[in-house]
Lab assay of single mutants.
Amino acid sequence: DVEEQIRRLEEVLKKNQPVTWNGTTYTDPNEIKKVIEELRK
Score class of each variant (00 low, 15 high):
Leu13Asp: 01
Ile36Gly: 00
Asp1Trp: 15
Gly23Ala: 02
Lys15Glu: 08
Lys33Phe: 08
Ile6Asn: 01
Asn30Arg: 13
Leu13Trp: 07
Thr24Gln: 13
Glu10Arg: 05
Trp21Thr: 02
Val19Asn: 03
Arg7Trp: 07
Lys34Ser: 07
Lys14Leu: 12
Ile6Cys: 04
Glu37Cys: 10
Arg40Tyr: 08
Asn30Asp: 14
Pro18Gln: 10
Val12Phe: 15
Pro29Tyr: 06
Pro29Cys: 05
Tyr26Glu: 00
Glu31Arg: 02
Lys41Gly: 09
Tyr26Trp: 04
Thr25Tyr: 11
Gly23His: 03
Asn16Gly: 15
Arg40Gln: 06
Lys15Val: 05
Glu10Ser: 05
Lys14Ser: 14
Lys41Val: 09
Glu37Ala: 14
Glu37His: 08
Lys41Ile: 10
Gly23Leu: 02
Leu9Phe: 09
Thr20Trp: 15
Glu4Thr: 10
Ile36Gln: 01
Asn22Met: 13
Arg40Glu: 03
Thr20Pro: 02
Trp21Ile: 14
Thr20Tyr: 15
Val35Pro: 00
Glu11Trp: 05
Thr27Gln: 06
Glu10Cys: 11
Trp21Gly: 02
Val12Asp: 12
Glu11Thr: 07
Val19His: 04
Ile32Ser: 01
Asp1Val: 09
Leu39Phe: 03
Trp21Gln: 02
Glu10Gly: 04
Leu9Met: 09
Thr27Pro: 02
Val19Cys: 09
Ile32Lys: 00
Thr24His: 13
Pro29Leu: 07
Thr20Gly: 03
Lys14His: 11
Glu11Lys: 05
Pro29Arg: 06
Glu37Phe: 09
Thr25Ser: 05
Val12Ile: 13
Leu39Tyr: 04
Leu13Tyr: 06
Thr20Asn: 15
Glu31Ala: 07
Lys34Thr: 06
Arg8Gln: 15
Asn22Asp: 09
Asn30Ile: 13
Asp1Ala: 09
Ile6Asp: 01
Arg40Leu: 08
Pro18Asn: 06
Gln17Glu: 15
Ile6Phe: 03
Ile32Leu: 09
Glu3Phe: 14
Glu31Lys: 05
Val19Glu: 03
Glu3Met: 14
Thr25Pro: 02
Val35Met: 11
Lys33Leu: 13
Tyr26Met: 09
Ile36Tyr: 02
Lys33Trp: 14
Thr20Phe: 15
Thr20Cys: 13
Thr27Met: 05
Trp21Asn: 02
Pro18Arg: 05
Arg8Leu: 14
Asn16Ile: 03
Ile32Phe: 09
Lys14Val: 11
Lys14Cys: 09
Glu38Val: 08
Tyr26Asp: 00
Pro29Met: 14
Gln5Arg: 04
Val19Lys: 01
Glu10Ala: 05
Glu31Leu: 08
Leu39Met: 09
Glu31Thr: 05
Trp21Cys: 05
Thr27Arg: 05
Ile36Glu: 00
Ile6Gly: 01
Glu3His: 11
Glu38Arg: 12
Arg7Ser: 07
Asp1Leu: 11
Glu4Ile: 11
Glu4His: 08
Asp28Ser: 07
Asp28Asn: 08
Gln5Tyr: 11
Leu13Lys: 01
Thr27Ser: 11
Ile6Trp: 05
Asp28Tyr: 03
Ile36Met: 06
Thr27Tyr: 10
Pro29His: 08
Asn30Met: 12
Glu37Pro: 01
Gln17Lys: 08
Leu9Trp: 06
Glu31Val: 07
Lys14Tyr: 14
Asn16Pro: 05
Thr24Gly: 03
Trp21His: 07
Asp28Ala: 04
Arg7Gln: 08
Asn22Arg: 07
Gln5Trp: 15
Glu4Gly: 06
Asn16His: 11
Gly23Met: 02
Asp1Met: 10
Arg7Asp: 04
Val12Met: 15
Val35Arg: 03
Glu31Asp: 14
Tyr26Thr: 02
Thr20Lys: 09
Glu37Trp: 06
Arg40Trp: 09
Glu4Pro: 03
Glu31His: 05
Trp21Ala: 03
Gln5Asp: 10
Asn16Lys: 09
Thr20Ser: 14
Lys34Arg: 12
Lys34Met: 11
Lys15Pro: 02
Asn30Lys: 11
Glu10Tyr: 11
Glu3Ile: 11
Val2Pro: 06
Pro29Phe: 07
Leu9Ile: 10
Gln5Ile: 15
Leu13Pro: 01
Lys34Glu: 05
Thr25Cys: 05
Glu10Thr: 08
Asn16Ala: 07
Lys33Ser: 07
Ile36Val: 04
Glu11Leu: 11
Ile6Leu: 06
